[in-house]
């Protein structure tokens, strides 16, 4: 077991007048995959967005350490440079910017912040081709404006393509499996598994135990009303599927 890459301590966060996360504790060591499950509206995406640095949310208590560094001081782009990646539940369309321009900009912006030299066009193309192959993406999508006119599944797959191209240390996948057909699900899972490394961690948000058959998690957490009410091994996901959140919640409360 590696060093904790991500450490969330008593995190309270929300929007003015409403606390959505109400004391989250979570430790994710490098090399591991953790699943985060929970009913609709329990705060999973909020947690993901707070990690990415979305300004709509304010942290009122607690802290997030990423590789030992307090994230609060970092802007979203600095978090990306530090090695954090969020695959959005609802990926955004960017008309007028091609996938190629977008990824070139992203990869080089991150490298620049890290003090690494920018990739020349040839090296960049190579990197993007490899990433595309990993998630079975047609490299021609790079010529299209980002996500514009993409189907729901294509958008999700494109998120994993970006993940592969940016090679972060921590990837948060917010319901990347929702909207994917069986084949696409396997492709995405295969891609994620290929990206697993001892120095990289994943936080996989999902509603479905099915995904966890393909991406086998080390730990499953259950978030209910802004708190992690239970953590366990992968069998917890099976219990949830069988018994539902209410039953698991009750057991946890006991």
């Amino acid at each position: 077991m590696g060093e904790p890459l991500l450490q969330i301590e008593d995190l309270h966060a929300g929007i003015p007048g409403r606390e959505i996360l109400r004391g989250v504790n979570l430790t994710l060591p490098a090399g591991q995959v953790h699943a985060l499950m929970g009913p609709n509206g329990s705060g999973k995406s909020t947690l993901a967005q707070v990690l990415a640095g979305r300004e709509d949310y304010t942290i009122t208590q607690g802290r997030i350490l990423f590789a030992g560094q307090d994230l609060a001081a970092l802007k979203p782009h600095e978090r990306a440079a530090a090695g954090l990646f969020l695959a959005f539940q609802y990926p955004v369309e960017i008309p007028g910017v091609t996938g190629m321009q977008f990824l070139r900009a992203a990869v080089n912006a991150v490298r620049k912040q890290r003090g690494e030299p920018e990739l020349d066009p040839v090296a960049m193309l190579k990197r993007l081709r490899e990433a595309a192959k990993l998630v079975d993406c047609n490299p021609d999508t790079l010529k299209r404006p980002v996500n514009e006119g993409f189907s729901g599944g294509e958008k999700k797959r494109n998120e994993v393509f970006q993940l592969a191209a940016l090679a972060p240390r921590l990837a948060v996948l917010d319901e990347t499996d929702s909207g994917l057909d069986i084949d696409a699900l396997q492709v995405v899972a295969k891609g994620v598994n290929a990206l697993r490394r001892p120095d990289r961690a994943f936080l996989v948000i999902t509603h479905y135990q099915r995904l966890l058959n393909y991406i086998v998690p080390d730990v499953v957490h259950v978030l209910v009303e802004g708190r992690i009410v239970k953590s366990g091994d992968r069998t917890l996901a099976l219990d949830l599927e069988r018994e539902g959140y209410a039953a698991v919640e009750e057991k946890a409360a006991v």
Partner: peptide, 24 residues
């Protein structure tokens, strides 16, 4: 939303805004 998306991919705010302006 798009500006934020670009920020999470590593672009500083001003550059993300400039890219979106250019795209327009």
């Amino acid at each position: 939303e798009a500006v934020y998306y670009l920020q999470t991919r590593g672009l500083p705010l001003e550059l993300a805004q400039a890219l979106m302006t250019y795209a327009f």
